[in-house]
Write a protein that binds this DNA or RNA. Structure first.
Length: 412
DNA sequence: TCTGGGGTCCTTTCACCC
DNA sequence: TCTGGGGTGAAAGGACCC
């Protein structure tokens, strides 16, 4: 006890799971450095014509601004907002410190992104008090140590904990007692359920299902016909408050990649290939830094009309080498039928089918030619680590001097 | 209004093998 | 020899999440 005076504490005895979510994370971190902006509309997002809102303070949200909204629209809705370009490195380091606060409470922490995590505090309550007290303690420490606020949901499982944190935002804490789950859950709109976005929401509306309670009262078979067996089972479980997923501390990544939207649509294959090289480098570097190699290379091409196609190829051996990823990406691009004809607004490179790099190396034991490439790229990683990622790069990625001829196309 | 970039997961289709 | 079916893995697309 001893906390601020409030209504009788809800029963959190069957609620071992916490969901902690930073409030307007990127924007809050920026305001730490510019306190004069506190309480004002602030938007974090890129400045180029095609960027979107990454984070907006609550005063900005009052004007209808929200994340993922095109910047052009956000600025129209709220012209007085201060727009700040993102500093991802900074958010990442603040995130690490916040996660460290969580791990002081329990080792069972599952980060979902830079700004949110699930915690299983069932082992900590004996030492630190009830789940809700632990949640308040975390909120207090984050505020003191990082000067930003967060919201905490306390519930019997992950799904409900997340719903709770959404409901009490910003700067709040909400317990969903185990014996009042349905009372809380059933009046909510179907869009509150994980996995219900625009498309599924429209399907459910068509079926006359508006609230979570409506879904709970619908036979699974009826949902299956419209949504498929997996989604039907998933929604039925959530709608009755069931979620058996555990808090996992070591989630293995399944793919890594990089993509980029051009400022203006591009059809020149030379420029596209140069972009593919840049993205292949980033992808390969990410693979090496996570100690993984990939079996499959995927490229993504988004046309001017926003239609997106992907093309993929599975390699004979897993790789973490830029050269191999780039060569494969170029071959896929050439075979896509879009090379040289379509105007593209985005290209992407992704590596999937990840295996530990150590396992991949043993398969290359027979003197494969790519080994020198790996050694060379590892050396480049070390230089980039010391002097920055632009300290060393392929000649094709150095801005061309006036009069210099483009690299001949099709040559490798 | 005009849509980023990082991902995960599911479904469908097809080839291939038995 | 032809046909069918199940299982599996790859490829492609799409919905969704933060």
């Amino acid at each position: 006890m001893g906390g601020p005076a409030q209504a009788p504490a809800p029963d959190d005895s069957g609620c071992p799971i916490l969901h902690v979510d930073m409030d307007a994370f990127y924007a809050s971190v920026e305001i730490r450095d510019r306190p004069e902006l506190a309480g004002k509309p602030v938007i974090v997002g890129g400045l180029s014509g095609r960027s979107v809102v990454l984070s907006a303070t609550y005063p900005a949200r009052k004007f209808g601004v929200h994340s993922a909204m095109p910047m052009s629209r956000a600025r129209r809705l709220c012209p007085q907002a201060t727009v700040i370009p993102p500093r991802h490195g900074l958010y990442s380091s603040v995130s690490k410190e916040v996660m460290a606060i969580f791990r002081d409470v329990t080792p069972l922490v599952q980060p979902l992104s830079l700004d949110e995590a699930f915690l299983d505090v069932s082992g900590a309550v004996r030492l630190l008090g009830s789940s809700a007290l632990i949640g308040e303690r975390i909120r207090q420490q984050v505020a003191e140590q990082q000067q930003i606020t967060c919201s905490v949901g306390v519930a019997p499982n992950k799904f409900l904990a997340k719903l709770a944190s959404v409901q009490c935002k910003p700067d709040g804490l909400l317990v969903i007692p185990a014996d009042r789950v349905l009372e809380f859950l059933h009046p909510l709109p179907v869009s509150a359920l994980w996995g219900v976005g625009q498309r599924t929401g429209a399907t459910l509306t068509r079926l006359g299902l508006r609230t979570v309670g409506d879904i709970a009262a619908t036979p699974v078979s009826a949902l299956e016909a419209e949504l498929g067996p997996a989604a039907a089972a998933h929604l039925t479980a959530l709608a009755s408050g069931r979620d058996s997923r555990e808090v996992e501390t070591a989630v293995r990544e399944k793919s890594v990649g990089a993509e980029e939207t051009f400022d203006v649509d591009i059809s020149d294959p030379e420029v596209i290939r140069r972009e593919l090289l840049r993205l292949s480098r980033r992808t390969a570097r990410a693979l090496r830094s996570s100690g993984c190699a990939a079996r499959t290379v995927v490229i993504k091409l988004r046309k001017a009309d926003f239609k997106t196609i992907t093309r993929s190829r599975t390699l004979a051996e897993p790789t973490d080498v830029t050269r191999q990823i780039y060569d494969t990406a170029c071959e896929l691009y050439a075979a896509s039928g879009l090379s040289g004809r379509a105007r593209l607004r985005l290209v992407g490179v992704r590596a999937t089918g990840l295996v530990p790099a150590a396992a991949a190396e043993t398969q290359l034991a027979l003197g494969e030619r790519i080994v020198p490439w790996r050694d060379a790229e590892s050396a480049v990683d070390r230089i980039a680590g010391r002097f920055g990622t632009d300290a060393i790069r392929p000649a094709t990625l150095v801005e061309r001097a006036v009069g210099e001829r483009p690299r001949p196309s099709g040559s490798r």
